[in-house]
Amino acid sequence: MNCHRVQSLLSAYLDQELSPEERRLIRSHLFNCAVCAQCFEELSRIKKYLGSLEPPQPQINLVDNFLSFKLHVVETNPWVWAKRLALTAACVFLFLLTSVYLFPVNDPHRKIAGHEVEYRQFHEQFTPYQLVSEQSSNVNLFLQEEEAEEKSNQNKKKDHFYLSLPQHKTLIPGIPVSSR
């Protein structure tokens, strides 16, 4: 046995946790090797010091303190549990409520996307965007024409109405009634 091996087993030798054969080998090595013997001496001194440490006294009576704490826990905790359960239930309810509003099931964008897909299937020669833009431009022109016609008709009606009234009864905005 070399010194390195012996020194790794010295602690176990000190605690008498080695086989009789190992103990015999180490004992004979210690008899011949001053370095390992010194190491063994120091380790045994450490063991002696640790074994002679004075046990500290607790500042409080551990058993009594423990019993009072235990009783306190038994008395108070069921209510704490109930409160926590109620709070959790409330949180879950709020979450469900907000999630319905934030993420509605009948999403209009989904429908549009669906239509676009169908459209693409029947008109493959055009992209859906081209078709949509063409259609929308035609429709807009048509709508603009219609609106302009309606406006001109309304203006005509207004003119006809105001012109048919007698001149002195028409009220001109911005001019006080007394000065007329």
């Binding site: 440490l53 046990p55 500290p56 607790p58 500042q59 409080i60 551990l62 058993v63 303190n65 423990f66 704490f69 235990k70 826990v73």
Partner: peptide
């Protein structure tokens, strides 16, 4: 009791932590 406290004291190195550790361990054991 004293042996438990001694062990806890040597592990933690101060009375307050040793007391807390012993109390908590006793509660768990109970």
């Amino acid at each position: 009791e004293k042996a438990f406290y001694h062990f806890a004291y040597r592990l933690t190195g101060n009375h307050d932590d040793a007391e807390d550790l012993t109390q908590e361990a006793l509660l768990k054991a109970y």
